[in-house]
Design a protein around this nucleic acid. Structure first.
Length: 424
RNA sequence: GGAGAGGUGGCUGAGUGGUUGAAAGCGGCUCCCUGCUAAGGAGUUACAGGAGGCAACUCCUGUCGAGGGUUCGAAUCCCUCCCUCUCCGCCA
């Protein structure tokens, strides 16, 4: 959430930031509303002070022996009543204004950080480094083909169970998925991340707190009978793990790693990536999440990205790191590095992790603060996929495929998978 | 699903209409005392918004699960909702 105070006092700065994201906004009206609200609040608070004094005076007089129904007390009562009427009128006005303001502010995304490159869409993203040597050639199969040939998954029967864009992993496929999850969790926990297994049904407040609501309701599955949604990413429950808390300063940074299934409706992506493991309504993901003091978030941003990259390196999967331009930035992020893994079968790089710095955007929405001395201030939050499991499996299959139809398992994964090759 | 109990500060727990943002205890912090430790003493210890001052800080308003209502005045009375706990039933 953008800072309401800043909107009031420095709206052009906010407008510029939103413009860089390609949002043409004029905050004049919002600013006027916000200023008006402050005025009303001040008026009301003055009246309330007056009313409190009247109340106290009545108490004093009755204690001093004045008749509760006597003239002097009645006069004060009248005064109290007239103040009350005025206050309730103002409160009504405040309420509508507040609602109006909140609705608008919740719809505005985070401001891009100053080092975030300007641009319209993913074509303007900037490659900042690459790792490994991409395999290039005509003969590489796509991962869904390999998976089918090796009997790792069943898409057709998954439609019977659920619908399209769901997958059932079988045999070695299921085991490969499980070994990837365990491998990633182990690697991250060994670096000081605390493992979390959160609820995957989350309430509206949680989705609002991390920025998925109110704007992206159509992207999430909702339980119609309850105030619960299927989480689209563990980022949601992890943010809300500390919602409405003041985290002791000495506890920062807090670093979590969570495995969770993720659910997305993928509205608007009909026809895209219809085969295989790339785009599903349900997929597994290991997520990294940091709560840090605002002074240390840039350093943390670098570290969390490297922690995600370490998995790709350990799995010997070539990748590149892209710095997202302002037009491609996610709603809550002020800066994002995408990790794109090389898929020789698809002959392209594919996003496998998104590492984002959210500054105080989620912290403000979720009211997550820390206290240094007597000063309470918002923390900064960061998140990174570490990694998306289905896409990692796709990458392992495509990069490890051999001419004889088997797949070589990366060495680091062998202790988890149990054998160095995948064959039918 | 049935029956009951309850939601107060970091925690335990008082408080049923009038300086109660809230007793007491525990915990935390600061200082004092003490050869060290233990014990002891004094003080301090919620959050949000706003006004004023360079600042230390001072002041105002709101907040005792949430929202309404009664009243000059509500943690305290009334209504609605939410949540938690216990017992029974059911169940992985």
């Amino acid at each position: 959430m953008l800072n309401p105070r800043e909107i009031r006092e420095n709206s052009s700065f906010i407008e510029e930031g939103l413009n860089r994201r390609g949002l043409k906004v004029n905050l004049d009206l919002l600013k006027a509303h916000s200023k008006k609200l402050k005025e009303l609040e001040q008026q009301r608070s003055n009246l309330q002070a007056e009313g409190n004094a009247v109340g106290k005076e009545v108490g004093k007089q009755i204690k001093a022996g004045k008749q509760p129904n006597g003239d002097e007390v009645a006069l004060l009562r009248n005064k109290g009543n007239s103040i009350k009427t005025k206050v309730s009128l103002i409160e009504e006005e405040e309420k509508t204004l507040k609602k109006l303001i909140k609705e608008q502010i919740l719809h505005y995304p985070n401001l891009p950080s100053s080092d975030c490159p300007d641009g319209k869409n993913e074509k303007d993203n900037i490659q900042i480094r690459t790792w490994g040597k991409p395999l290039v050639g005509e003969d590489f199969k796509e991962h869904w083909q390999i998976a089918e040939e090796l009997g790792l998954l069943d898409t057709e029967r998954s439609v019977r169970i659920a619908k399209s864009r769901f997958v059932t992993l079988l045999g070695q496929g299921a085991k490969l998925e499980r070994s990837l999850i365990n491998f990633m969790l182990d690697m991250h926990t060994s670096k000081g991340y605390k493992e979390v297994l959160p609820p995957v049904l989350v309430n509206t407040a949680s989705l609002e707190g991390s920025g998925q609501l109110p704007k992206f309701a159509e992207e999430s599955f909702r339980c119609s009978e309850d105030d619960l949604w299927l989480t689209p990413t563990a980022e949601v429950p992890l943010t809300s793990l500390h919602r409405d808390e003041i985290i002791p300063f000495e506890n920062l940074p807090i670093k979590y790693v969570a495995y969770s299934p993720c659910f997305r409706r993928e509205a608007g992506s009909y026809g895209k990536d219809t085969r295989g493991l790339i785009r599903l309504h349900q997929f597994n993901k290991v997520e990294l999440y940091w709560f840090v003091d605002s002074a240390n978030s840039n350093e943390a941003y670098k570290q969390i990205t490297e922690d995600a990259e370490a998995i790709l390196q350990a799995l010997e999967l070539p990748y590149r790191v892209m710095k997202l331009c302002t037009g491609d930035l996610g709603f809550s992020a002020s800066s994002t590095h995408d990790l794109e893994v090389w898929l020789p079968g698809a002959n392209s790089y594919r996003e496998i992790s998104s590492c984002s710095l959210c500054d105080d955007f989620q912290a403000r929405r979720s009211s997550i603060r820390t206290k240094k001395g007597k000063q309470t201030h918002l923390v900064h939050t960061l998140n990174a996929s570490g990694l998306a499991i289905g896409r990692t499996m796709a990458a392992v299959l495509e990069n490890g495929q051999q001419s004889d139809g088997t797949v070589k398992i990366p060495e680091a994964l062998v202790p988890y998978f149990g054998k160095p090759f995948l064959k039918s």
